[in-house]
Amino acid sequence: MAKKHKDRSEEVKKIFGNVPYLNSSLFEPTDMEHDTLFISNLRDEKAIPIISSTVLKNEQGKRRTGSLSTLEYLFEFLNAYDFSSEGSEDIQEDNKTLINASVLGLIFEKINGYKDGSIFTPGFITMYMCGTTIRKAVVQKFNEAKGWNCQSFEELKEDIQEEIRSGNRKEVRRIANQIINSLKIVDPAVGSGHFLVSALNELIAIKSELTQIAAIRL
């Protein structure tokens, strides 16, 4: 995918004809691929013995034995980990080994960052920056749409609650939801997408807070 369309093989063009040129070191072959085998040439014809210290488990929760086809082994290995969160009871119940998002970010930085100048930003920083910025943007959007003069998110919640008391609950909900959904967030220097995930989490948190103070579902 890191090759321009005209430089791709006919086989790749046939399969990925609509995929644009992805100009990022994330899609470039690694040094290991140059020294061994390109991952795009990986075939599913051979069976690989399962390593004795594998994280793969059988239905009884014991380490799996035997062998698996190449791609099945790869997908089963990746599926054994949870890449999505910082940890929760659900993950423990699923018996999935947790890969912390910060660890993945650091791996991304070490592998690709030195080429692109990409530096992974920890979650507590992205959440703080998104929370501060997006809440101000939400207040500004409501002020513009309603003609209000709220100076903070707390004042905004008070004004929404007052409007609900004196107006049509469903209409207030519809307009509030419309205002929040009109926000546009752009991350022009997107790397691992950590800022965008934090932005989405913040929008969900904002809607949740407004739901609680207004006793409605935004």
Score class of each variant (00 low, 15 high):
residue 51 I to Q: 08
residue 45 E to C: 06
residue 164 I to F: 03
residue 30 T to W: 11
residue 17 G to E: 02
residue 182 S to Y: 03
residue 133 T to W: 00
residue 1 M to E: 14
residue 73 Y to N: 07
residue 168 N to E: 13
residue 125 I to Y: 13
residue 65 T to P: 01
residue 167 G to Y: 02
residue 196 L to V: 10
residue 139 V to K: 00
residue 92 Q to G: 09
residue 102 S to D: 11
residue 214 A to V: 00
residue 155 E to K: 01
residue 82 D to T: 07
residue 133 T to H: 05
residue 158 E to F: 01
residue 36 T to P: 05
residue 149 N to C: 00
residue 103 V to G: 04
residue 126 T to Y: 03
residue 30 T to M: 08
residue 139 V to Q: 03
residue 27 F to E: 07
residue 161 Q to V: 11
residue 55 V to T: 14
residue 211 T to G: 12
residue 66 G to P: 05
residue 190 V to K: 03
residue 210 L to C: 00
residue 88 S to T: 09
residue 71 L to D: 01
residue 1 M to V: 14
residue 67 S to Y: 11
residue 107 I to Q: 05
residue 74 L to Q: 06
residue 88 S to P: 04
residue 87 G to M: 09
residue 176 A to V: 08
residue 100 N to L: 12
residue 54 T to N: 07
residue 79 N to L: 10
residue 134 I to L: 09
residue 49 P to W: 14
residue 44 D to L: 09
residue 106 L to F: 02
residue 7 D to R: 04
residue 170 K to A: 14
residue 46 K to I: 03
residue 147 G to C: 05
residue 36 T to S: 13
residue 126 T to H: 01
residue 214 A to P: 01
residue 86 E to D: 12
residue 188 P to H: 07
residue 153 F to E: 01
residue 32 M to T: 12
residue 198 S to R: 09
residue 15 I to E: 15
residue 174 R to H: 09
residue 195 F to S: 04
residue 203 L to T: 01
residue 158 E to Y: 06
residue 10 E to V: 13
residue 72 E to M: 09
residue 194 H to P: 04
residue 132 T to F: 03
residue 69 S to C: 10
residue 111 I to T: 12
residue 43 R to L: 13
residue 116 D to T: 15
residue 149 N to T: 06
residue 112 N to V: 07
residue 25 S to H: 15
residue 24 S to P: 02
residue 73 Y to S: 01
residue 147 G to Q: 02
residue 163 E to N: 13
residue 207 K to D: 05
residue 130 C to N: 07
residue 211 T to K: 00
residue 80 A to G: 10
residue 127 M to W: 00
residue 156 L to T: 01
residue 33 E to H: 03
residue 53 S to R: 15
residue 96 K to P: 00
residue 57 K to T: 14
residue 32 M to L: 15
residue 64 R to L: 14
residue 46 K to N: 10
residue 135 R to P: 07
residue 103 V to L: 08
residue 159 D to H: 12
residue 109 E to G: 04
residue 12 V to G: 00
residue 154 E to Y: 05
residue 22 L to P: 04
residue 151 Q to F: 08
residue 17 G to F: 05
residue 82 D to Y: 12
residue 184 K to S: 09
residue 110 K to R: 14
residue 99 I to R: 04
residue 146 K to R: 12
residue 209 E to I: 07
residue 9 S to A: 09
residue 169 R to I: 08
residue 174 R to P: 02
residue 86 E to G: 10
residue 57 K to A: 14
residue 137 A to W: 00
residue 35 D to I: 13
residue 110 K to I: 08
residue 202 E to W: 02
residue 157 K to R: 06
residue 31 D to P: 15
residue 55 V to N: 15
residue 91 I to P: 00
residue 153 F to D: 04
residue 209 E to F: 01
residue 3 K to Q: 11
residue 190 V to N: 05
residue 127 M to D: 14
residue 133 T to Q: 07
residue 65 T to S: 10
residue 170 K to P: 07
residue 25 S to V: 06
residue 58 N to G: 04
residue 164 I to Y: 02
residue 46 K to E: 11
residue 136 K to L: 10
residue 61 G to H: 13
residue 206 I to Q: 02
residue 205 A to T: 02
residue 88 S to Q: 06
residue 11 E to L: 12
residue 163 E to G: 13
residue 186 V to N: 09
residue 64 R to E: 15
residue 205 A to N: 07
residue 37 L to Y: 10
residue 174 R to M: 08
residue 92 Q to I: 09
residue 198 S to V: 00
